[in-house]
Design a protein around this nucleic acid. Sequence first.
DNA 1: TCGTAAGCGGAGGACCACCCCACTTGTTGG
DNA 2: CCAACAAGTGGGGTGGTCCTCCGCTTACGA
Lengths: 202, 202
Amino acid sequence: MLEGNTAPAPSGRPMRADARRNYERILAAATEAVARHGAEASLEEIARQAGVGSATLHRHFPSRQALLEAVFRGKVEALCASARDLAATQDPGRALGAWLRAVVTHAVRNRGLAASLVRGASGGDPALGATCHTMILNAGEELLAQARRAGAVRSDVSIADLLTLVSAISQATEGDPGGAVRAGRLLDLALNGVHPGPGTMI
Amino acid sequence: MLEGNTAPAPSGRPMRADARRNYERILAAATEAVARHGAEASLEEIARQAGVGSATLHRHFPSRQALLEAVFRGKVEALCASARDLAATQDPGRALGAWLRAVVTHAVRNRGLAASLVRGASGGDPALGATCHTMILNAGEELLAQARRAGAVRSDVSIADLLTLVSAISQATEGDPGGAVRAGRLLDLALNGVHPGPGTMI
DNA sequence: TCGTAAGCGGAGGACCACCCCACTTGTTGG
DNA sequence: CCAACAAGTGGGGTGGTCCTCCGCTTACGA
């Protein structure tokens, strides 16, 4: 934790001090609210908790998706780094499997992450919101290509499909107790199939 | 189609004529609204479309889940019948695969069905809302037991897991164009695994 | 025909996202 | 140092949601 999650000045000059402070307050409140209530947490409540007018929240984060992106940027970057790491140190098949499992684990631990990952795909304009989605897509693409070259995965499997599956599993198990083990079981099922036999990919 | 979808008198005496008429109007409006906007369609709008006060809608259908159950009861019954049919006529492995594919197909064609199926699981009180969920669970259970006896599926796979997976896939692909083929691909992936080799279960 | 209970729906409360606009405040050039 | 001003603020408004209360209407059986 403790990642200095601050990327508030995409425009020319640096932000005003108060604006930056508000940005960070909102981000902190959002992080907590999303952890507590999931991706559908009330924006109004987040603004209230941050001690800020709702207009300020909407100015800094034009859409719910933008806020979620900011909240989870650190996690997503960690996931991408982990992908690079696994690709370099593990054998291709295991690397992909381990990474997908890591994605599920993160998604189960951090409510709203899965939603944030998929929403980037279709919801909202592609220029702004899709960063998390594309980041993780690119990271996974490398891993998948490697596994495919090694003959560990079918050639008709795309990274988009795998991530959709992973997000779907995470969202389906979100909320119920014991969701973590359930999500793990479902991932195992999806990767190894329902047939009897040795599961070669964790 | 054209299933006479009317089960409005669970209590002792028959409903009053106007009540029954309103019940059916609401059901018709809900069917259309859910087809158009998915499981999150506005209840207020449904009541408006049915020419009925919102209180009337809430009296007939105490929860959104109850309304969805009523809307999809026919489809779910058809699915259950199809399970019985497949179990009797196909070899066990294929029967289960074909049925799961049928569930996905139905869920893709009828927006909100997948949500209705899973919501029954956790959301709401178990006495009233879980009918669709338990119906389809029971239907699938039979098919799975048969397939397991034939050695076509791993012994640690539960019907609940399979249906969660199927619903998750349906919901994940809901909304985007070409969702049907995408859903089919994802189901194939989940059933046969990511490894190369002959997929024995369609 | 008529009493009554079953059913009705509008109004209203509590919430929500989002936007407008009069006001405040940090910043910076003189 | 200070003043002009652009950048930033938040209260309040709009229009939407779900859901409930309660006084009125109406279908039905006696």
